[in-house]
C-alpha cells in the first residue's frame, strides 16, 4: 500500500458517500445514470469473487464488502424509494455493447482461462467503460447539479491516482499488470472533458454547464 493508492481508495469511498448524500438530501436521483450504477455493481461482484478464496487484509476485505453493498443499496434507492425521480429517456446509452464488449476483451486478454481470472478481467474492462452512460446523460442534459459533479470528480480522481500508484509500484516493486494499467489509462482519459469543465467552472463557483 502506498499513499497514492490509499488516497485513491478514499476518493472512491468518498465519491459513493457524496452520491448517497445527494440522494438523501434532495430525495432525488435526477441526473444519475442507473445503467452506470448497475454496471458498477456487476464490476464489484465479478471482481471481488476472491473474497471467498484469497484474503489480503482487513482493510481490503472491508472495502470490497463496502463497494458491493453500497452499489446494491444505490440501485435499490433508484428503483424503489426514488423511482419517480429517475428519467429513463435521458439514460439512453446502449449498455448491451459495453456488457458484450467487455466480455470479448476479457476472453481475448485474460491472463489465465479460469472462471475467477476471466471474470476479474471482465470486471476491469467493464469498469473501463462503465462511466459512459453517465457521461452521455451529462452530455444530453448539458448541465448538472454541483453535488453530482463532485461525485464525478471524486470518481475520476480515484482513477487518475491509480495511475500514479502504478508508476510508483513499477519503480519500487517492479510490479505491473498490463491489463489493469491499459484499462485504467483509457478509463481516466474518458474523464478529460469533464475535468476541464469541472476545473474551469465548478471550482470557480459557477454552474456545471457544457459549452
Amino acid at each position: 500500500m502506498n499513499i497514492f493508492r490509499l488516497v485513491a481508495d478514499l476518493m472512491h469511498l468518498g465519491s459513493i458517500l457524496i452520491l448517497l448524500l445527494k440522494m438523501f438530501t434532495s430525495r432525488s436521483c435526477a441526473g444519475i445514470s442507473f445503467k452506470t450504477q448497475a454496471l458498477y455493481l456487476i464490476v464489484f461482484v465479478t471482481r471481488y469473487l476472491d473474497l471467498f478464496t484469497h484474503f489480503v487484509s482487513v482493510y481490503n476485505t472491508f472495502m470490497k464488502i463496502f463497494f458491493i453493498s453500497s452499489a446494491g443499496y444505490i440501485l435499490y434507492m433508484m428503483r424503489v424509494p426514488l423511482k419517480d425521480t429517475y428519467n429513463k429517456h435521458l439514460d439512453a446509452f446502449r449498455w448491451e455493447f459495453l456488457l458484450g464488449g467487455a466480455g470479448v476483451l476479457a476472453l481475448v486478454f485474460t491472463h489465465k482461462y479460469t472462471v475467477i481470472e476471466t471474470l476479474w478481467t471482465y470486471s476491469i474492462f467493464l469498469e473501463m467503460m462503465a462511466i459512459l452512460p453517465q457521461l452521455l446523460q451529462l452530455q444530453r442534459t448539458g448541465e448538472a447539479e454541483t453535488i453530482t459533479t463532485h461525485y464525478l470528480f471524486a470518481l475520476g480522481a480515484y482513477r487518475a491516482l491509480y495511475i500514479v500508484n502504478w508508476i510508483y509500484r513499477y519503480e519500487t516493486e517492479h510490479h505491473v499488470d498490463a491489463i489493469s494499467t491499459m484499462a485504467g489509462i483509457v478509463q481516466t482519459a474518458l474523464y478529460c472533458d469533464f475535468f476541464y469543465v469541472y476545473f474551469t467552472r465548478v471550482l470557480k463557483g459557477k454552474r456545471f454547464k457544457l459549452p
Binding site: 470490497k64 489465465k112 481470472e117 499488470d177
Partner: peptide, 10 residues
C-alpha cells in the same frame, strides 16, 4: 506479474 501477482488492489 500478470496472473501470478497477488491481486491486492481494489
Amino acid at each position: 506479474m500478470g496472473a501470478d501477482a497477488p491481486k491486492d488492489e481494489l
